[in-house]
């Protein structure tokens, strides 16, 4: 992650106040601001996609209508997971994300313009409009995602395998939700990666809800991190605090890079919006409290309290994020749609 000019300025200011016992270890202020910046960019992105998605769905709500048709799974609330993990990665490391992929794509540095053009189904998109928002592939950052629950884990093993065989210290991060931890692919992948000491970090985003089914109704244990012990690898569960994620991911990434094998990191996060847009969430018993669990205002407050950010800093970061996002949206809108005559292209190389 490049350190923004603002963060570099902040880094030169006197050391932040000492933290109280039991809090997360001190992080360099540039790292903290960087984490915040990633989350703000990710949220700005999702808000813009939300706006564009709903702009032309009427009358009523027609899922197949508008500039951005189809299912749309947005990640608001889950930004700490992506920001905290991807802060340890370079574009040489691989990430396989889920059907809810934008926050990981943003945090891993996928080109926003190409990603947005893909979501808008344009020829300039990552997949020339053949993929859509659940099928984003970016060779430049080794980023991909899959719309099938838990099935993004196995390909990550292969990327890690290739990195390992070539003697590099590159790693693969494989992401699923807590619902996916009950799929066979999840368990097969943990076992194989552990047995072959593959450089993988398995991330589970526990947002409490597998569409409408709460984790308590689907899963026999309270923490998926405990499942790691079944495969003899470290497992850790943290709350939706970006610095806690950063800290735990640091251990998992370091272990993978050092050739010591995979780890599992579960983050108890929050899905602020619906499973997909159009989901009325009548089943959500926790909806009233969910908004209060928004991780971004909380982190912003903490940075302000520590003197790491002030009004001007916050405004600058939000403005920069908004401007990058709007630029990407604009580029997507101005890009050509694919020629229907090319609908059968790209099946084979």
């Amino acid at each position: 992650m490049t350190t923004p000019a603002y963060a570099r300025e902040q880094a030169q200011t006197p050391a932040p106040p000492a933290r109280q016992a039991g809090e997360t270890p001190d992080l360099d202020v540039s790292v903290r601001v960087g984490l915040y910046e990633t989350m703000v960019l990710s949220r700005a992105y999702e808000e813009a996609i939300l706006r564009e998605y709903h702009a032309d769905k009427g009358p009523g709500f027609d899922i197949g209508k508008g500039l951005v048709p189809g299912e749309m799974h947005l990640s608001a609330g889950q930004e700490p997971v992506a920001a905290g993990v991807c802060a340890h990665l370079t574009s040489d490391d691989a990430v396989t994300a889920t059907h809810r992929p934008h926050h990981f794509a943003v945090a891993h540095g996928v080109d926003l313009g190409k990603m947005t053009a893909e979501i808008f189904g344009r020829e300039t998109g990552l997949g020339r409009g053949r993929g859509g928002h659940m099928h984003l592939f970016d060779p430049a950052t080794h980023f991909s995602c899959s719309g099938i629950i838990a099935e993004g884990y196995p390909p990550a093993l292969g990327q890690a395998f290739a990195f390992q065989r070539r003697g590099t210290d590159r790693i693969a991060v494989a992401v699923t939700g807590e619902g996916a931890a009950n799929q066979g692919a999840f368990h097969e992948s943990l076992n194989l990666a552990a047995r072959w000491s593959l450089p993988v970090v398995f991330v589970v985003e526990d947002n409490d809800w597998a569409i409408s089914v709460p984790r308590s109704a689907s899963t026999a244990i309270t923490s998926n991190a405990a499942r790691a012990s079944a495969y003899g690898i470290p497992g850790e569960r943290v709350e939706n605090d970006v610095e806690a994620v950063y800290d735990a991911a640091n251990r998992a990434v370091a272990r993978a890079r050092a050739g010591q094998g995979p780890s599992l990191l579960e983050v108890h996060t929050v899905r602020l919006w619906g499973h997909f847009e159009g989901d009325a969430q009548g089943y959500r018993t926790d909806l009233a409290e969910a908004a209060a669990r928004d991780p971004i205002p909380a982190y912003e407050q903490s940075l302000r309290a520590d003197g790491a950010l002030d009004d001007a800093g916050v405004a600058r970061i939000k403005e920069a994020a908004g401007s990058r996002v709007e630029q990407a949206i604009e580029l997507a809108k101005q890009s050509p749609t694919p020629d229907p005559a090319s609908a059968t292209s790209y099946v084979f190389a």
């Binding site: 884990y153 093993l157 990327q159 065989r165």
Partner: peptide
């Protein structure tokens, strides 16, 4: 055994592994 590799009985995992390795330029 580095190139002729016995796998666990986990076809989803090892076929997926082949896919990921192929994506990174290997020829599994």
């Amino acid at each position: 055994p580095q190139r002729i590799i016995d796998t666990p009985i986990s076809e989803t995992a090892f076929i997926g592994l082949g896919i990921g390795a192929a994506v990174e330029g290997m020829r599994p």
